[in-house]
Design a protein around this nucleic acid. Structure first.
Length: 429
RNA sequence: GUGGUCGUAGCUCAAUGGUAGAGCUCCAGAUUGUGAUUCUGGUUGUUGCGGGUUCGAGCCCCGUCGAUCACCCCA
């Protein structure tokens, strides 16, 4: 039994969970396309070097890495952005700018699993390359907001935490802190709300700063700060600024961010970030050894935390129920009441399916009652009974419970026509 | 990687150190041409795994694996 378990941190997707996953995929896709994004995909494994060089220490400590049979060091991707940067830089001449690209796929991080954290998770990535304008940042934030709204997550359920790394690079310049301390400093800022004040103060003094000074700077960085003016004007015009809250402590762990950074987080359950991203203007140049200098920004949303948030949000549950009702089950179920007619029934199965009717039937002889029960379980709208009346068949509307005789040769057209009618009859509990 | 809590049937959970159970689910029958309800019967476990203590361990001890929480960080 133990050996049959999934590998630590990995998940099975039983039909119920798979339906949920597809619902999330469909929603991501439809909103991304609404924003003019095109879909791409990258390899699930890359050389370990790709992440060592581009992502920074935070990610490399979590790499799911191993050696292949030729002793190459490779890793399951912990994120997709480095792969995207490679793809974009190697063939950037083939694409008109700005490139609005999105991707959906698994990522892997080797860390201790707990709620909202698995070793394999699925990410939705949306990136815009070749456009350095702040309008790009706003477009991405707007997309992240519209995705949340599309899931039925509402204004009282979530918010965007917005900041800008340039706030801090400018601050360090003004304080005459050498550039090599920038990384250390951002780590301190990242933890400033969680760590003990004394420890933070000690760390800051090591690079010539005081906690009071940093705190004062953070407090001054509100929504009126000029660093946010353009994005604020843009999102205000869209009617989306109400979802945004300035939070200077957001700096993000990935090394490559250069400007705007933001996270999507829930307001009611204290979950981990649902999504996060920002501007990474130097990554393409780094990836191409300076040959392609292309501005870029993007964000990623994971399925795990999102799934938890959806399950805890009633308005999101209603959207899921609607989706599942539209996806599940079949249009019709063929009941073979008389086994002598099975050959005719099978011919009808093929003809109806060829006409696009979602249809199921019992592959082995079954009592009629069982077959109707199966039709019910499959949420079929119609039952089609093949019995002694052949060449006529009974067409029964399982919702209204009305039933009529139809000539076999008219069955396909009759069913196709009937399925176009709105569903009427008693509602099923 | 470090520390805390937990681990019994497919699911939710019972069982003073003394014969491993219930509800739900699933399958079959009552019901050989019509969906519900009800009733009846049936399948399922090396009590996560491996050692130890004991006359005897689901229960106590050690290890291990997994889940979960915290650290860490983030999707």
């Amino acid at each position: 039994m133990a050996s049959l378990r999934t590998v630590k941190g990995f998940r099975d997707f039983f039909p119920e969970e798979c339906a949920m996953r597809n619902y999330i995929f469909d929603t991501w896709r439809s909103i991304a396309r609404r924003y003019g994004f095109v879909e791409y995909e990258a390899p699930v494994v890359e050389t370990t070097d790709l992440y060592r060089k581009k992502s920074g220490d935070e990610i490399t400590s979590q790499l799911f890495c191993f050696r292949d049979k030729a002793d190459r060091e490779i890793s399951l991707r912990p994120e997709v952005t480095p792969s995207l940067a490679r793809m974009a830089t190697t063939r950037h001449r083939d694409f008109k700018k700005p490139m609005k690209w999105f991707q959906i796929g698994s990522c892997f991080r080797y860390e201790e699993p707990q709620e909202g954290r698995t070793r394999e998770f699925i990410q939705f990535n949306a990136d815009i390359l070749g456009d350095a304008s702040s309008g790009t940042d706003a477009e991405l934030i707007a997309l992240s907001i519209d995705v949340m709204l599309a899931f039925g997550i509402q204004a009282e359920d979530f918010a965007i935490r917005l900041s800008n790394r340039q706030l801090w690079t400018q601050y360090l310049e003004d304080q005459n802190v050498p550039a090599e301390h920038a990384g250390t400093f951002l780590q301190i800022v990242d933890k400033i709300e969680r760590a003990k004040p004394e420890e933070t103060a000690t760390k800051l003094s090591a690079i010539g700063l005081t906690l009071e000074n940093v705190r004062a700077f953070m407090a001054a960085a509100d929504e009126n700060h000029p660093a946010f003016a353009a994005v604020r004007a843009d999102l205000t015009a869209r009617g989306l600024w109400k979802y945004v809250r300035i939070d200077a402590s957001i700096v993000r762990g990935l090394a490559y961010y250069t400007g705007t950074v933001f996270e999507v987080f829930d307001l009611k359950h204290g979950l981990r970030a649902v999504a996060g991203g920002g501007r990474y203007d130097k990554l393409c140049a780094l990836m191409s050894d300076g040959n392609v200098d292309m501005a870029a920004a993007g964000f990623a949303m994971g399925d795990v935390v999102l799934g938890i948030l959806l399950s805890k949000t009633p308005s999101a549950q209603m959207a899921i129920t609607d989706y599942l009702n539209s996806q599940q089950g079949v249009d019709a179920y063929i009941v073979v009441a008389d086994e002598a007619q099975r050959a005719h029934a099978l011919a009808a199965v093929q003809a109806l399916r060829a006409a696009g009717v979602r249809l199921d039937f019992s592959m082995a002889p079954q009592k009629v009652g069982k077959q109707f029960q199966a039709a019910e379980n499959q949420k079929a709208r119609f039952a089609i009974v093949f019995g002694a009346e052949y060449p006529e068949v009974q067409l029964k509307n399982l919702v209204s419970r009305e039933q009529s005789l139809v000539p076999a040769e008219a069955l396909v057209s009759t069913v196709v026509e009937a399925l176009k009618q709105p569903i009427v009859g008693p509602l099923l509990a």
